[in-house]
Write a protein that binds this DNA or RNA. Sequence first.
DNA 1: CATTATCTCGAACGTCGTTCCATAGCTGGT
DNA 2: ACCAGCTATGGAACGACGTTCGAGATAATG
Lengths: 241, 241
Amino acid sequence: MAAKDETSAGSVWLRPQRSRGGRPTLTTQQIVPAAIEILDTDGVEGLSMRTLAAKLGAGTASLYWHVANKDELLELALDDVQGEIAIPAVGEVGWRAAVGALAAGIRDIALRHPWMIGLAGVKPPIGPKAMRLNDVAAGMLAAAGFSGAAVSRISALLSAYAMGAAAAENSCRQGAAQPGQAAGQMRASIEAHWRSVAEQYPNLAHWRSENPSATFDQDTFLFGLDRILDGIAVWRDRAPG
Amino acid sequence: MAAKDETSAGSVWLRPQRSRGGRPTLTTQQIVPAAIEILDTDGVEGLSMRTLAAKLGAGTASLYWHVANKDELLELALDDVQGEIAIPAVGEVGWRAAVGALAAGIRDIALRHPWMIGLAGVKPPIGPKAMRLNDVAAGMLAAAGFSGAAVSRISALLSAYAMGAAAAENSCRQGAAQPGQAAGQMRASIEAHWRSVAEQYPNLAHWRSENPSATFDQDTFLFGLDRILDGIAVWRDRAPG
DNA sequence: CATTATCTCGAACGTCGTTCCATAGCTGGT
DNA sequence: ACCAGCTATGGAACGACGTTCGAGATAATG
């Protein structure tokens, strides 16, 4: 751990590069994907510096030459997965489909890497891949005819909804499938508990009686997305720009 | 730690109550608010079972009689703060204002207790306060004239957006004010870093040139909320219900 | 009063993130 | 060819953490 003194206590991204001399066997480009692999399998709690180093065949302390600490490693991993999102060009599909694909892409990534859901609301989104995503989204919205502050606000609206929807969907999944027991067992005890308290929640009970298996799923996401796109469309038609 | 065997490895909420006999000095009703106080001050990492017990004047191990583990304590705290959200009746203000107040209330709570942002996407939302909130929201939407699946979908849309917006706003704040350095110092180094990479992000650069201080703030939230409410309104007018 | 269940908590265990520092390898200057 | 100086490694240790154990204290029950 050196090379940190010039911009002390900043984010990873604000730090200058190092190079020249030495023995370059371990690199950040190896560490981050390995960390993501562990995160996808075991979650944030399953990632320890020791297991990560073991997976790379390196000593634990060696990691600290390449990343300042675990928090910074998580920041790097969080930024890295945001590079997986692909956004179609507006010309190919029309603005509504392109904008919808942006939101759907964000949701897909979040559900594929659930550990990032708890991280995205905490770590600042200033990594290169996150900025690239924002830049592409801004270009797409500009090409769709939006201008000025509308570009950033609509982009913010879509990504906020996509992340919130992924969070809701993921938390519902956590309740449905607890580890260490049969799949149906938890669901059964939830069902029993629900019946015992249903009378305390009359409105929920009424709705749930006509729709028993109620979770936040893809249909829920797509319904909300359509409402948002409708709202953007009427705003776009009302105030030109 | 007992009384867990009957419904082994379930959520807190599925566990029966205990009582009768013994020395009831420490209660869950004391523990959870104390934990929330620490969480508000120091975040999730600042909450340790030892400091919490010390704050309560109790031994560390005593906590484990009332909560199974730290995860369950966080679940209890997460549910508890959701009881702070107040929702106005539809008759008083009209459905659009009432629905908007629901989303704004969720955002307020999340920004007042930022630690819950990283938790809400991970812990299942089946606590009593969370269900009460859902129930009240469902009743509000039903009173507003929505029916059937629309009630749950619109409620899900609003809370997903509110949480996502709070997450985005909070993560922007994390980037702006890093602890342990002067407020302007981080902002200055971000600014310098931005200038050095601006040409890589032409669309962002163009937009940022007309709007230098760009973060997710209340105006961004309200703009998106208005678009969502517009979208719900046109859907409501189109398909009766 | 004896029994039984409830509740407290000092002490200990294993794991974690992190640091220290001795050491190894590469590069450039002479 | 050689050494100086940087880059990089990693064994060992530290302190803090979540959690468990089990002995003890307290109050209701029969």
